[in-house]
Amino acid sequence: MDLFLETLTPWAEAEGGIRFAMIVGSQARRTDPADEFSDIDVVLSCADSRPYLDALDWLAPLGTPLLSFVEPTAVGGEFERRVLFDSGLDVDFVLLPHATLAGWAADGMPPEFGTVAARGLRILVDKDGIGARLVDRLPPKAPPDRIWSAAEFAGKTQDFLYHCLWAARKAARGELFVALQCLNGLLRPHLFDLARMHLRLTRGAAATDWYGARMIERWADPVTIAALARTCAGHDRAGILSALDAAIDLHASLGREVCDRLAISYPAEAAAQIREMVARV
């Protein structure tokens, strides 16, 4: 990474359209730092971000792109150009309008992006002297997950149970890829969120500030990890139905403890009926 930064920093200094550059993510973190598999997350504020999102020619001084595309950022609602250079170096360039970054310096970053930056931030170029204000407005720590209301828990649980049966019926019909899409893309994220809320309620506000399944092998307990592993399935009907049964089991296990702390009742009867319907399928 040091060799790349030796090229990036003078390039950003000389590039008229770039006003600010910083490194965030694993390459700047104090805990859980980068390893050999980590990419480099670069934030660039631009007088006009469109030329950097729409074209590739600006990358030439930094290396030869093998692959590159634009996608929304994982957090914060911005856009980034992801680049895999022919050397194998993987760099995500988050390209912000400079007015956006100036607004962050004045009012603070959006919470999700602020959480990422608070773990580690390394300013490389600051042509307008806003870096100190940006750092001053970083959250001192990640804000804890908001505790679900009884209505939110009920809605999430009914969504989860409904789609367990939906996926089972798709698998029974032979639409295995659709069933797997539901299992992997909808049901397991429900379980990740529930595991986070369970941790929040059983261990306190500082239990974890990772989103989704990031670092879940580190912050979840071994029993939960083993149960999550049983919700994985291959392209076969029996395996999918077994994984759905394991997902219902895990949801009930975590959900009952969450409900105890929220002083509400887990919908055991509905869960039992869904389990029976899945078994009949």
Rank of each mutant, 00 (worst) to 15 (best):
W166D: 10
G155T: 07
Y211I: 04
F177E: 07
H198A: 07
F160T: 02
L161I: 05
Y162D: 09
L183P: 06
L199V: 03
P189H: 06
Q181H: 14
F192W: 15
L161A: 09
R188Y: 00
A172M: 08
L176A: 06
Q181D: 13
A151G: 05
A154Y: 03
A167Q: 07
A168D: 04
C164D: 03
R218I: 13
L161F: 09
C182K: 06
H190I: 01
L180Y: 05
A195T: 10
W210A: 09
C182G: 13
R218Q: 14
M197H: 15
A205V: 09
F153P: 01
A168V: 05
A179T: 05
N184T: 04
A151Q: 14
D159I: 02
K170L: 14
A213K: 08
A205L: 13
H190Y: 08
Y211F: 11
R196I: 06
M215G: 02
L180N: 01
A171W: 06
L161Q: 02
R214F: 02
G212I: 00
D159G: 02
W210V: 01
A168S: 13
F192S: 10
E175Q: 10
F153I: 08
E175K: 00
H163Q: 10
D209Q: 04
L194W: 01
I216V: 14
R173F: 02
F153A: 09
R203K: 15
A172C: 05
F153G: 03
L194N: 02
V178E: 10
R203I: 00
A206F: 09
H198D: 09
H198M: 06
Y162A: 06
A154D: 11
L176C: 07
M197V: 12
R173A: 08
G174T: 07
N184V: 03
E175C: 05
L186S: 11
R173G: 00
G174Y: 04
W166L: 15
K170R: 15
R203F: 00
F160A: 03
K156P: 00
Q181C: 07
T157H: 03
I216M: 14
L187N: 08
R203L: 01
Q181V: 00
R203A: 12
A206D: 15
L194S: 04
